[in-house]
Simulated assay, not measured.
Amino acid sequence: MRLAFMGTPDFAVPALSALHAAGHEIAAVYSQPPRPAGRGQAVRPSPVHNAAEALGLPVRVPTRLRTNVAEHEFFRSLELDAAVVAAYGLILPGAMLQAPRRGCLNIHASLLPRWRGAAPIQAAILAGDSESGVTIMQMDEGLDTGAMLLSEHIALTDRTTATSLHDDLAAMGARLVISALTDPSIAPHPQPEDGVTYAARLTREDGRVAWDHDAAAIDRQIRAMTPWPGSFTTLDGVVLKIGAAEMGTAEAPADIPAGTVLDTALAIACGRGTLRITRIQRPGRGMMDADAFLRGQAVPIGTRLGT
């Protein structure tokens, strides 16, 4: 099958690799343009861009698509059977959605219609959902509103992180999209009208821990925000990233303010319950176990975090 592939981050790389390995003819790979990244802010191609070049595939990096008539015409000239889209990051206009013979298929990291939008992996963990999954969707001009071809579920646990779920769903999406393209018995069906939710794009501020929240909610936040934007708090005005935590087994005394350090192993009073920080990072250092952090940083009992 003659395809275009459109994706940008690590999530999309397994699907590109699977389509290539399955023998599909990938006429073009679209990705977002190279951008500054890392401490030195060197301009770097996206993970999909790098993967495509390693496979010897042509890459296109338009900065915009909606009004880019020249790109619409080029896309049409490819005479595609289908396009596969995975976390591309640019909205496809109708002229491009309609160009391939079988349209454009999207690998979406949620069980639609729950968690349409930009950050479905993090949203599922934040909400305490019991499951997540991947939906292969026939794209239309709405926000993740198209008809569904395939979906598959995965259970979430109280230790699932955005990193682990991302990797599981990326592999799942790569497998499912091959079936969606090659199995003639699979037919699209409309999304349910009930149960629609939206996952907003994340900002750095979404990682700020509010210690007056429930300990279980803070634990979900820490797991959902790993690795980006990362959860953080402050100690004497210094920003500390929290890499991992575990739920405490007891309530803090009622007269202890939220954010108070309760013992010498970084148990913290929350609005309800307690949370023990197990991985933490100070500025200019790597993420480390809490005991290693405490050997170089005194945090007396009674210290308030986040103030």
Rank of each mutant, 00 (worst) to 15 (best):
R2Q: 13
A4G: 15
T8Y: 01
A18D: 04
L19T: 07
H20E: 10
H20Y: 13
H24L: 10
I26T: 00
V43I: 15
H49R: 05
A54I: 05
L57I: 07
V59W: 10
V61L: 10
T67E: 14
E73N: 12
F74V: 12
L78P: 07
D81H: 15
A83K: 10
Y88E: 02
A99K: 05
A99V: 02
R101F: 08
C104T: 05
P113Q: 09
R114M: 05
W115H: 15
A119R: 03
P120Y: 04
A123F: 14
L126Y: 07
S132V: 06
T135A: 01
M137V: 04
D144R: 12
G146P: 00
G146T: 00
L149K: 00
L150Y: 08
S151M: 01
L169W: 14
A170P: 07
A174D: 06
I178R: 02
P190T: 00
G195W: 10
G195A: 04
G195C: 06
T197P: 06
A200R: 14
A216K: 03
Q221E: 06
I222D: 13
R223V: 02
P227Q: 08
F232L: 02
F232E: 06
T234N: 09
G248M: 13
T249L: 12
A250G: 00
P253S: 04
A254L: 10
A254E: 07
A258P: 15
A258G: 12
T260D: 11
R272Q: 05
G286T: 11
D289V: 00
F293E: 02
G296C: 09
Q297L: 15
T307N: 12
